[in-house]
Amino acid sequence: MSLLPDAKTLLIEDSPDRVVVRLNRPEVRNAIDQQMIDELHQVCAFLESNPKILILTGAQTDKGGVFASGADIGQLRDRGREDALAGINIKLFIRIAELKMPVIAALDGFVLGGGAELAFAADFRIGTPSIRIGNPETSLGIMAAAGASWRLRELVGEPLAKEILLAGRVLNAEEALAARLVSSLHDPAELLPAAHALAERIAAQDPLAVQYTKAVFHLPRQAHPEADMQAQAVLFESAAKYRRMTAFLEKKAKK
């Protein structure tokens, strides 16, 4: 059975170890609306029950590649206090960040506002030379309230995060690479292959070990080292650990 066959805002490819999701509202540069939020929640529900690597990218527009130009301003303009307190975007982006297997954001063109915050929720970000990434929310009379206010400082440090959040600085590809906000740049035709190559490297690891490592990595400092010991205790008893270490020792013995 295909994943979300009736999706209106996403193009989805489901394979045994990964799911590729393309944001697909090219007429509005993949602006994130309520329908897209709802459909991404359904993707998360599937991945929470069936842990796989997630690759997020944007469908092509008639003006070239774009990840997401932000939230849908038409909908955002009409939202009020109760909508803000409902955490429409932030709850989804937290859910994406907390998926058991890694999330790869493959970025092209505009990565702005809510689109940037969606990218910040990923474990890996790669891009093309045309990316423009930033949070211009204060120019619209609001703030970046779906994760950028804390994730961006963790990703690039306080001085640059404040330039982006308080002064509206939008980074180009080279600046994003220098800040390590993206880990690599690729020609547009090579972007998705590069994301798949990264997914292949992740898929070559033991899935349970990857899941525990991701979970422990994101815990607060005070949770360590107890969390590390508890996670390792589970992995030490796994059949995969014994099988993989045995294979390593046998291969080493043959050299």
Rank of each mutant, 00 (worst) to 15 (best):
R243Y: 05
I90H: 14
E117F: 00
F248K: 14
A227K: 07
E27P: 00
L219T: 12
T246E: 08
L92E: 01
Q60K: 12
R221F: 03
Y242N: 11
D62L: 15
S183D: 06
T9Q: 07
K8H: 10
P220S: 09
V234C: 07
T138W: 02
G127F: 11
F217S: 14
L219K: 15
D83N: 05
G147A: 07
D78M: 15
L4S: 09
N50C: 14
L166N: 14
A247Y: 02
Q211H: 08
Q42D: 11
L198H: 05
D78I: 11
M245F: 12
K254D: 11
L219D: 12
P5I: 08
E250H: 10
L185N: 05
I164P: 01
R125D: 01
V234R: 09
E237V: 01
Q42L: 14
N135A: 08
E137Y: 03
L235T: 00
D72G: 02
I73E: 12
G65S: 12
P220E: 05
I32C: 03
L40M: 15
F248G: 00
C44Y: 02
Q60G: 04
Q232G: 07
A253Y: 06
N89L: 12
L192M: 05
K255S: 14
R180Y: 07
I104M: 06
L23N: 00
H186G: 02
H186L: 07
N89M: 11
K254L: 13
Q34R: 14
A106N: 03
I104A: 04
A86P: 00
L235Q: 04
P102A: 10
D17Q: 09
D108V: 08
L40E: 06
E163K: 05
A195G: 04
A199G: 04
A122H: 03
I53E: 00
L118P: 04
S183V: 13
G58C: 03
M229Y: 15
I88W: 05
G113L: 07
S149I: 03
L11W: 15
G115N: 10
A233K: 11
Q75T: 01
G109Q: 07
M229H: 14
A223P: 02
G134L: 07
L54S: 01
G141Q: 08
H196F: 14
A253L: 14
G168M: 10
V210A: 04
K255V: 13
D83K: 04
S184A: 11
L185C: 06
E158M: 06
V216Q: 01
I73Q: 09
E98S: 05
L181V: 10
D38V: 08
P193A: 05
A167E: 15
K52E: 08
I94W: 15
L40K: 02
F67H: 04
L10Q: 02
A97W: 12
M229A: 12
I37S: 01
A203C: 04
E154P: 00
Q205H: 08
